[in-house]
Design a protein around this nucleic acid. Structure first.
Lengths: 199, 199, 199, 199
DNA sequence: CATGAATGAGTCTTCATTCAT
DNA sequence: AATGAATGAAGACTCATTCAT
């Protein structure tokens, strides 16, 4: 079901293909779920829960150094994705096609809040005193966020055209590390003792 | 038409809704366009042309200072978008749902080339000697790109929920300026004479 | 028009193709003929008139010897057909597809009467005293009719798969002659003097 | 279905009318038959099979005397037609409108072979030595064929306008007998011993 | 619980017919 | 007279949903 919705979107997902794939009769689908819409709602809810418990809840929000925090976060996300990629794909598809807003506005709101809170949490309790002082800390946080988002989506887009069995994940992580250290160089205040003036 | 395709995607766009919205009879649509597919092709072509002439062609690619270049670019894009937002929305939807690749492979290719060339052009002839030396210039360019993309999409997303008649565009542009100057501070080498080492 | 109706039948004939073929605007067709049906009626009437005047009216019904009468009739029909084959094709198509009975019952009736009268006329004033006496003359006439009909339709069917430019019509006529002389041998009383009994 | 196809031809047969006539929902037709074309193919196959088993297979091809053979054949055909006239009408319509050749070339070929073989079989092992010698036997066979075809189609056409419940079939068969004995008189050589004189 | 045949509103598309020009 | 853009009913076909079994 998740796969069908993820790859065709709500409107073009076929209940026929679903029951065929699931090996059940047409009637059962509508016995458990009154309608396609309710099935969609159920799927979305399941995915939100999965992402919440297997990804967001695993985040270590105590780590004050954003670089380490994000490095860990990336690994956790990757692990959750590899364990069960469908919820991620389903949510991405839902987000992209804007299916949810009109179909299940309440769940969509929950999803948005989750995203917002996750984001807020990711950047909460970051030791902003480590940031350079000449740029507003919110701006710095935005730049980090946009950089990571941009890198992620382009990396994922690149992955889509590849055979992922025995893919070299290490080089991908290394690239991510490079990005993070660049961000540190750029956005952190210069290390104290090598500071040129003490300013 | 553009709106229908943009908000439902090719497969789920309803020619019934289109003619109802346009206030024309069912037959007219197929009098001018032999099929839904041909209509889609026409729309896509129109949008590509619009974006090309009203946005990409207006870009000033001679300006070597990326900050000024991007400031101008942002204004031009915003102006084109406000003049006629539908082509932007249509193309975004087309891109996101991957409708074009199988429907109109030739136009899709043109679109990809346009995007790639536009991007290349935007970053061509930038004076990278102004960039800080401790991070690879490609990385710097990526960071600029991701920052601008991120800011743009979030700004647009925020605008979507608002009534745009008498909107305060100046404050939006001011925000963009702030972003650009932050990027300059962060990614440019420090001004020569006040430089702490003279390096 | 005749060609369109003849080759596609009433229902599948396209008024678009007709105006295109005729090089006139769509409106003109419906200015002169209120509807497709009226156009069909006009065509049918025209064809009936053509067949009446150029074929049926030319028949020589004075010739008492059926063999000669039919030989002449065949030639006249062929001449009319070659002069303007469309009415024949149109009527054949109409007859075969049973278009006329429901569309223009009155004309269909006229057509049937024409056929019936033509048939009656063809066999009227035949000198049946020449026929053999052991079979009813009506039966003999039927046999002649069926033989000619059968030969005609099979010959026409065979012609349909051929290129008719420079076709050898003589051999076809010769074949027809053979048929007629066979019929004479079979259906006429034996010639008086060479007869074995002199009866 | 058979009736719809038979009376309107493939192109103009309306699936709407079919489901209405059959009293089923629109979807059912396309649940069992993927397309109108497949439905047509099924119908044609059914009709061919029906004609084969209920008509052609019943023919007694051992009878050397053509008069008896045809008498039996006529009765068998009439019985099959009365049991289920639609296959005959469907096939006649298909044949006449030339629907099959482009739609289902394989079945059309089978149909043609069936017809050709049936015809060949009907005239095979006929004792042509009984025929009169002054006309080619192929010509004689043609005359028999055309006479029977002509009589059949005119008889059927006459029947179409009648109420067939309690129709007097015996008189029809008697008429057919008359035709056959006329054919015998005409086409057989005169009885050997009473030849030419004693009659 | 489970099936899948049955439904009918909806899909894109065609085409005879009308009407402003 | 003449045009062709415009209409809408009808075409084949799809698919979420129901219901008898």
């Amino acid at each position: 079901m998740l796969k069908e919705f993820a790859s065709h979107g709500y409107a073009n997902a076929s209940t026929n293909r679903m029951v065929q794939e699931a090996g059940i009769g047409k009637g059962m689908l509508f016995y458990y779920f009154k309608s396609k819409e309710e099935l969609y709602r159920y799927c979305l809810e399941y995915c939100i829960d999965f992402i919440s418990s297997e990804y967001l809840a695993q985040l270590d929000l105590t780590e004050p150094d954003f670089m380490i925090r994000f490095k860990k976060a990336g690994e956790i996300k990757m692990r959750a994705y590899l364990q069960n990629p469908l919820p991620f794909l389903f949510l991405a598809s839902t987000y992209i096609r804007r299916d949810a807003p009109e179909l299940v506005p309440d769940l969509y709101q929950r999803l948005e809040e989750l995203t917002a809170n996750g984001l807020k949490a990711m950047f909460a309790n970051i030791d902003t005193s480590l940031f350079r002082q000449d740029v507003a800390p919110e701006q710095i946080i935005n730049l980090i966020r946009w950089a990571i988002d941009g890198w992620s989506s382009e990396t994922i887009a690149a992955l889509e055209n590849q055979d992922l069995t025995d893919y070299d994940w290490d080089s991908t992580f290394a690239e991510f590390d490079e990005l993070l250290s660049a961000l540190r160089k750029i956005l952190y205040r210069r290390a104290a003792h090598g500071d040129c003036t003490g300013e």
